[in-house]
């Protein structure tokens, strides 16, 4: 008789890629619908909220504080940064408590627990796509010329998605053990809004601060996305990981951080995930 635990031969209808995609589609769509079911304006809120947020920041930084004087595309810079930031922060924020909230389901059905935080993030993804559509209309109105570099948006978004999901998975597994993680993340998200150069040019920071800022992959993704969509800017806006870390290799510093985070998140989630049902 073996002294190590083994579970063999068990066949379930709850495995395989088609099953994963089905769960993400069904749970994500119903979650998204449920978020706005009882609201008078319904789905309109998903676009109104970021636009209102943008309006406040634009009023303060483009007019009252005159940060916009430093680039003519400030409005679009601000919008791109804000849309990406809201996707990042909202996704992590909704994934973080999802395992604890889905505890009862995990205790009665056998399925991969990774599906809980992943499906929680789908509703935020749908909101993001709606916001991108609204942004596209605005960009057309601003008469931006199409550029060949726009195709780089796809790998940059993949990088953002992978980074966001990895952080969300890691924090959701940690939250099962330490509820403080929720409070820490709320505070961190507030700090990041100011630390990520969303509404001011990152080039106004001292060199050392720029180096620290670009250790956050979100800053690299946001800056690259702005440069790819709008072209090289002038002055303090024209900053990327490549220029900050001097040399072509500098581009890879945030990417290496994303890869390390993904490996750590998967390893930790898989280790902890075996015992979620017992701990919740």
């Amino acid at each position: 008789m073996s002294t190590t635990p083994e579970t063999l031969g068990r066949t379930r209808a709850t495995t395989g890629l088609p099953y994963y995609l089905r769960v993400l589609r069904v749970v994500g769509a119903i979650d998204f619908k449920a978020r706005y079911t009882d609201a008078a304006l319904g789905y309109v809120w998903s676009v109104v909220k970021p636009l209102a947020y943008f309006g406040v920041l634009w009023l303060v930084f483009a007019h009252l504080l005159r940060t916009a004087n430093q680039t003519e595309d400030f409005t679009l810079y601000l919008l791109i940064g804000l849309l990406l930031f809201l996707f990042f922060v909202d996704s992590v924020g909704i994934m973080l408590p999802s395992i604890v909230q889905g505890g009862m389901t995990l205790r009665r059905l056998a399925f991969d627990p990774i599906l809980i935080p992943l499906s929680a993030s789908v509703a935020i993804g749908i909101t993001f796509l709606l916001n991108v559509s609204a942004f596209s209309v605005f960009a057309i109105y601003q008469q931006i010329d199409p550029r060949i570099e726009w195709f780089l948006v796809v790998p940059l978004f993949v990088e953002l998605y992978v980074f966001t999901i990895a952080l969300g998975l890691l924090l959701s597994a940690l939250y099962v053990r330490f509820r403080d993680v929720g409070q820490v993340w709320e505070l961190t998200a507030q700090l990041l809004l100011f630390a990520c150069a969303i509404f001011y040019p990152i080039g106004i920071l001292p060199d050392w601060a720029q180096k620290v800022a670009f250790l956050n992959p979100f800053v690299q993704i946001m800056q690259d996305m702005r440069l790819v969509l709008l072209g090289r800017a002038s002055g303090p806006y024209d900053v990327s990981a490549e220029t900050v870390y001097a040399g072509y290799g500098g581009r890879f510093v945030p990417i290496v951080i994303v890869v390390l985070l993904v490996l750590a998140a998967i390893a930790f989630f898989r280790r902890e995930g075996r015992y979620f049902a017992e701990r919740l």
Partner: peptide, 17 residues
């Protein structure tokens, strides 16, 4: 398969619900 045993073997044949 919801809990992991500390020791021993569990073998199930067929589609489990």
């Amino acid at each position: 398969g919801i809990y992991v045993p500390d020791r021993g073997i569990v073998h199930v044949s067929g589609l489990l619900s």
